[in-house]
Simulated scan of single mutants.
Amino acid sequence: MIDIYAPWCKHCAVLEPVWTSLAERLEGKVMVGKVDGTREKALMKRFSCEAFPSIYYVAGPDTRVYAGLRTLQELEKFAMFSYKDVKPLPFYRSPTSFVGRASGNLIRLPARFQALVKYLHEEKKYSALAILAGILGVPLSTGVLLVYMLDVFFGARARSRTHQHRD
């Protein structure tokens, strides 16, 4: 089970001791964790988290959203068996599905890109102009190569059809 929380949230602060007790009670039975949604925005997006705290039960490809009382007894009951009574999220909304992982990677892309630029500039000592040229050059050259390959493949077919019609 995962609790997505915010440090400033009063409801999250009230849940904290209950969540700690739940983790102790379920040790060895169900994994219990928490994620700071204000720091892990990509993960928060993958879970489609819209409020704090949000509690999810994740088992393989299935993800279920907990919407009951936030008492130790109710949370434990949900974690052990009543999660089965809640319909899992559809595959396209599940954070563990291909779609969920892909959207998480897409959301992380700007941060990874920023880290790459920082690494190239500070560690490898590339100038900003060289980094920009590389960043623009790779997709541009890939696009030109793709257009050339399409032209060779489809252009040859079109030219052979044109010659057949003339004969």
Rank of each mutant, 00 (worst) to 15 (best):
I2S: 08
D3I: 02
A6Q: 02
C12P: 07
V14C: 00
V14L: 00
L15R: 07
L15S: 01
L15H: 06
P17I: 07
P17C: 13
V18K: 08
W19C: 11
L22F: 07
E24D: 15
R25P: 00
E27K: 15
M31S: 15
M31Y: 03
V32Y: 12
K34V: 05
K34T: 13
D36Q: 08
G37A: 12
T38Q: 06
R39P: 00
E40T: 00
K41C: 00
K41W: 03
K41T: 10
L43P: 00
M44A: 14
K45H: 04
R46K: 10
R46G: 08
A59T: 05
G60A: 03
P61W: 03
P61D: 12
R64C: 06
Y66P: 00
Y66N: 02
Y66I: 06
A67F: 03
L69M: 04
E74M: 03
L75Y: 07
E76L: 09
F78I: 11
A79M: 10
M80L: 15
M80V: 15
F81G: 13
S82C: 09
V86I: 13
V86W: 09
L89R: 10
P90H: 02
Y92N: 02
R93V: 04
S94F: 00
S94V: 01
S97P: 08
R101I: 12
G104F: 06
L106Y: 14
R108I: 04
L109I: 01
L109Q: 04
P110Q: 05
L116H: 11
L116F: 15
V117M: 14
Y119A: 06
H121R: 03
E123F: 04
K124G: 01
I131P: 02
I131V: 11
G137C: 01
G137E: 04
T142G: 01
G143L: 09
V144I: 13
L146Q: 14
V147F: 15
M149N: 12
D151Q: 07
F153L: 12
G155E: 05
A156C: 13
A158Q: 12
S160L: 04
S160N: 06
S160I: 06
T162W: 14
T162I: 13
Q164K: 13
H165N: 14
R166M: 13
R166I: 12
D167H: 14
D167P: 04
